[in-house]
């Protein structure tokens, strides 16, 4: 059965692709945010099971948004999806308290991790 997921990404095409990928496995996309501010506001109102978070976004970036969400709810399950180098930024994401860091184009790994969390 599906999980409720909030997608945070500034790219419309990426949000569309993620929605398609996640919905194909029965997950429920409860909301989409295009920047950090919107993500924090939507997280507070929707309380999703998981959040897929982009890092580089115009306005508030994903790392700052994740910090804010974790400050509000330390048990939030945030999964970073980014095009940035995994080796370099995976550790930063871990320090922040995120549940994972996966390159955006690895859709199978994204699905597997969401299933496991």
């Amino acid at each position: 059965m599906g999980k409720s997921i909030l997608i945070v990404d500034d790219s419309t095409i990426m949000r569309k692709m993620l929605r398609k990928t996640l919905e194909s496995k029965g997950h429920i996309i409860v909301g989409e945010a295009k920047d950090g501010m919107e993500a924090v506001a939507l997280y507070k109102s929707l309380k999703p099971d998981q959040v897929t978070m982009d890092i580089t976004m115009r306005g508030m970036n994903g790392l700052d948004a994740a910090k804010e969400i974790l400050h509000h709810d330390p048990k939030a399950k945030i999964l970073f999806l980014s095009n940035l180098d995994e080796e370099k930024y995976g550790e930063d994401a871990k320090r922040l308290g995120a549940k994972g860091y996966i390159n955006k184009h690895k859709s199978n790994e994204i699905l597997n991790l969401i299933e496991r969390l």
Binding site: I55, T56, N61, G62, L63, D64, A66, K67, L70, H71, P74, L79, L84, E86, Y89, G90, E91, D92, A93, K94, R95, L96, G97, A98, K99, G100, Y101, I102, N103, K106, E109, L113, R116, L117
Partner: peptide, 23 residues
Amino acid sequence: APESDGMKQEIPYSQQLGEGEYH
């Protein structure tokens, strides 16, 4: 990405859950 505050700032230990998976 250029260094941002989000990357530099230390996170409180309570938030360092560290139970996720990293690829």
